[in-house]
Amino acid sequence: MQKGIQTELMQNVLETFHLTIPVTQEVLTELASNFTIETFRSGDIIEKPNTKKSRWYFIEKGLVRTYFYREDAQVTVMFFSEGSCLSVFEKYYYNEPSKFYIEAIEPTQIYALDKKDGDRLRSKYLSVAELHRKMLTQYLMSAQEHLDLLKYESAEARYEKLMERIPDILLRIPSIYVASYLGLTPETVSRVRSRLAKRGPKEPGSNSIEKTNW
């Protein structure tokens, strides 16, 4: 696997974060040379526990989910699609072991930055430090939205909100993962789906955050 992506691709990634600190050509080139492109098939594990390996991922194309095992069963935590980014934060920021898996659930292409390089570059360049801050804030925002969903909404409302936010992507996620993600059983999800189908479509709500992962 070769390290280094084209500077144009790097530029595209940076543009999604609206950095206020200008990125010089030097920084752009060095940053681009530290990312790798990787391709995964559906079902491939991108990162697993029990490895020290830790990276930031930017999803160029495809769909991934994070999950952990609780007594032999997988609990799906979050999904990430094009334009979003993620990392296993216990490892990246705290050097702590983590039980999270990252798995591609479609053919997926990502740009990855290894922690070693990330640590070095963010202490070297203010713009890369800002990039990390922005990536963290984006992730936190989505995690907050999802936690609110799990905590405050009824079963039907959870599914409805998800339908509002990510109608197209929802069709791409196997329903067994959707159920786990929403803290519901697959039976409940089926019930809610058919109830909503009978009722008919609502007016689509507006996405409050652009390019959000959820």
Partner: peptide, 18 residues
């Protein structure tokens, strides 16, 4: 950044709890 990462850790705990 460490503070934000800690908050993410906390969210993961809440996800697990729920």
């Amino acid at each position: 950044q460490q503070s934000m990462a800690y908050k993410i850790k906390m969210f993961n705990i809440y996800f697990e709890i729920l």
